[in-house]
């Protein structure tokens, strides 16, 4: 579903991604771990072209993102993204946040997008918050709205960049629960996270990144209990 070939990304002279190769299969849940500054966010953001690619290829659902024929806006409708800082639109209430893109991009009627939005709110357990503004919600609720907003475009895959890192510990569970549900429904997911519990329980595969390369990957249980690389060992020792 996603094919990455020899992906390089430079900011000026600073090479942040130094040749990444990976395949992500349909319905797979891939967790990306690694130290701060290793390029996890940059990698994720290259998958939907929030960052321009310096060299290499990213092919999403058969479309090469660096191909000038590719309509990047259309590709992005297939890839939902959830940010660490939620990034809800503060001037719109919850249901309007969810309805905006379906109406403006997919040209779905107001009525239909509202119905779809309400269904998604029910799914993330926030039907009663439809008319509230983001500032009136807890962090966990905001992040669940952000997930619903991304799902409203009916994407084929979802990218999560540390979705629970900005949350108070007691709010992490409710967001992970929604993500777990999504995974069970067969959503293709790439999740940058430090939640090892989630990675073990839900993840099909773990990628360990360091200094712009994928150092090690494999089954979560294997990587966590029996890491092959010294760098992975060192990292896991620090965070566990």
């Amino acid at each position: 579903m996603i094919i990455v070939k020899d992906l390089h990304k430079k900011f000026g002279n600073n090479e942040v991604l130094k040749g990444i190769d990976c395949h992500i299969e349909p319905q797979e849940v891939v967790c990306v771990i690694g130290p701060s500054g290793s390029g996890k966010s940059t990698f994720l953001r290259c998958l939907n072209m929030l960052e321009t690619i310096t060299s290499g290829d990213v092919v999403v659902d058969g479309k090469n993102l660096s191909d000038s024929e590719t309509n990047i806006n259309m590709v992005r409708t297939e890839i939902g993204m959830v940010f660490q800082q939620f990034n809800l639109f503060p001037h719109k209430n919850v249901i309007e946040n969810i309805m905006l893109a379906p109406q403006k991009v997919r040209k779905i009627s107001e009525k239909e997008s509202r119905e779809r939005g309400m269904k998604l709110l029910e799914k993330v357990g926030l039907s009663d918050k439809a008319e509230q503004f983001p500032s009136q919600l807890s962090g966990g609720q905001q992040q669940r709205v952000a997930i619903a907003r991304a799902l409203a475009m009916e994407p084929k895959m979802m990218l999560f960049d540390e979705p629970t890192s900005a949350l108070d510990p007691e709010l992490v569970g409710e967001v992970l629960e929604v993500m777990k549900q999504l995974a069970l429904e067969g959503m293709t997911m790439v999740v940058v996270t430090h939640e090892m519990g989630f990675a073990k329980e839900v993840g099909d595969r773990v990628l360990f990144m360091d200094e712009g390369v994928i150092v090690e990957q494999g089954d979560p249980d294997q990587v966590f209990t029996n890491p092959q690389s010294d760098r992975t060992k060192e990292f896991l020792n620090k965070i566990l």
Binding site: N48, N73, R76, F83, N87, A150
Partner: peptide, 14 residues
């Protein structure tokens, strides 16, 4: 914040 534009673009808005 830059994140507002990015959130919009990630949903497919031009």
């Amino acid at each position: 914040a830059k994140g507002q534009m990015e959130a919009g673009r990630s949903l497919g808005l031009s």
